Computed example of a mutant assay.
Amino acid sequence: MPRQPRPPGRRSYDQYCAAARALDAVGDRWTLLIVRELLGGPRRYTDLHADLPGVSTDMLATRLKDMERDALVERRRLPAPVSASVYELTVRGRRLLPVLQALEEWGAPALDDRRPTDAVRAHWFALPLRRALSGLGGAGVVDVRLDEGEFHVRVGPGEPHAAYGDGRAPEAPDARLVLDTGTCVAVGRGDLSLEDAVREGRVEVEGEGELAKLLRGS
């Protein structure tokens, strides 16, 4: 098979290996964190920049351009009266969800005490909490309130268009959880199960949906 030419300006490991090809596309600094943000649904450039503290505007623009080239994201114009451009993951981009979930599970033990320089956003806890909720075996939408703010997660079979989102879910949730950040970190690290956190009173559960009942053990 003839070798495909490398796109102009693109760096490559030049290895005939699936892992190397994957890292050619997502191995650059900030790329996977942009994916993390877009797993929550379409975002405007300004919103992405606000929730990626530390990235320069030039770097963010470059990474988004690279990700468009690699068919990970696409840009579209919202209709009036909004009339704004947003970036969203393609189907290929959304298939990085299990990759991000595996990374956060692998990195969770490193979340010890928060450093003075650490930024935090409530929705950064969505993927580890979604993983814990998925382990219950149910399906639905869960609203979550932490000290830093609110978000919602979607769990169950299939490939969700958005694995989570900022704020409360637009539809009626199957459950609503209220917990502090320390409890959420402990659950993400695997130090504490959600069921035990509920039994110990560290997680308040509201609602009568399937997931709420599973969490209460009823």
Rank of each mutant, 00 (worst) to 15 (best):
K65R: 11
L96M: 03
G93R: 00
E88R: 12
L127E: 04
R77D: 12
E74D: 07
R76S: 15
A71E: 14
V82T: 13
A61E: 11
R121I: 04
A108M: 08
L97Q: 02
S56I: 07
E68Y: 02
D112Q: 08
R115G: 05
E68F: 06
S85I: 05
D112H: 04
D113C: 01
E74T: 12
D66E: 12
E74W: 06
V120I: 07
P109H: 00
A84N: 04
A126I: 09
F125W: 12
A84C: 10
W124A: 05
L127D: 04
G138S: 15
R131N: 07
D112I: 01
D112E: 09
A122M: 04
E105G: 07
P79E: 13
L89T: 04
G93W: 00
L103I: 12
G107E: 15
R75M: 08
L97K: 00
R121E: 05
S83C: 13
G135T: 03
A108Q: 06
P98F: 01
A71C: 09
G137A: 07
T117I: 04
A84V: 13
E104R: 05
Y87I: 05
L97E: 00
P81W: 05
R92I: 05
A108F: 04
G135L: 13
L78E: 13
R63Q: 06
E74L: 08
A139K: 15
Q101A: 10
D118K: 03
G138A: 15
R63D: 00
A102P: 06
E88Y: 03
A126K: 06
M67F: 04
D118P: 04
R94Q: 06
S56Q: 03
L103E: 02
Q101S: 10
K65P: 02
V91S: 12
A119L: 08
R114E: 10
R75T: 15
D118T: 05
R114C: 05
G93Y: 02
S134L: 06
A61R: 10
W124N: 09
L129V: 01
L129Y: 08
D58I: 11
P81D: 04
E105M: 09
A119S: 14
S85K: 15
M67H: 06
V73G: 08
P109I: 00
P116F: 00
A110E: 11
L96Q: 00
R77F: 15
G93A: 00
V120K: 12
D66A: 15
P128K: 14
A126L: 09
